[in-house]
Design a binder for these strands. Sequence first.
DNA 1: TTCGCATTTCGTATAAATACGAAACAAAGA
DNA 2: TCTTTGTTTCGTATTTATACGAAATGCGAA
Lengths: 115, 115
Amino acid sequence: MSEEYYTESQKKMARYAKALGHPVRVFIMEYLMKNASRCCYSGDMAEELPIARSTLSQHLSELKDAGLIQGEINAPYIKYCINKENCAEAERLLGQFFKNIDFSNTTTCNSSKIL
Amino acid sequence: MSEEYYTESQKKMARYAKALGHPVRVFIMEYLMKNASRCCYSGDMAEELPIARSTLSQHLSELKDAGLIQGEINAPYIKYCINKENCAEAERLLGQFFKNIDFSNTTTCNSSKIL
DNA sequence: TTCGCATTTCGTATAAATACGAAACAAAGA
DNA sequence: TCTTTGTTTCGTATTTATACGAAATGCGAA
């Protein structure tokens, strides 16, 4: 019944963008990127963030559900790291997306009646 | 009292990403990019989307508040277009962000205990 | 088996996002 | 001035996101 109005790319892009749509989650991603050579645990990040550990855990889950990170059990810790494959896809989708902007055209929206 | 935990880049990135975190808004952005040479009105997009016009208007407002698009009054229409300056910033921020991924390192999270 | 530890899940509260239809608005034209 | 028209704002309902503390979980070590 419900027709498909959005392309797979549009839905995927929105999914990835939504996951990155919170400063805590951007922080987590950058933390994992910077510390990719060593083990990254929830507790390490918790010490640098002003939120409860349960809240951090939820943000980790969101990034995991979106496919941007993955966790590996290293009991009693859980080691987190970037999901490179999906991050590469997100990078590609976003790159393609912005490439469609025509920076040569300067004739639109240059009047004084800008909202 | 509330210390600053997130960088300006992190907050800006999250803001832009959040604005792109819905298929309708990705659709709108791509529509405006593709039709940059001509006028884009709310009604044109409404005809291609399965949502109420008031809902579309709200999504347009979100993109506008995030700085990704702008509107120009062309009564009784409102002409929308990409805000190139801010889109360029978003592109730059996201590009920098993903560039931090170390694709050469393959030693993390390759065990069988992946969550 | 029992304890301790890091982490998540649960329960819950509050705020924000998403959606719709009705009403308001602003400007052009009759 | 009144009407028409495209769009937004308002009022509202529902869902989802964000946050916390308490309790549960899973596992290694004692």
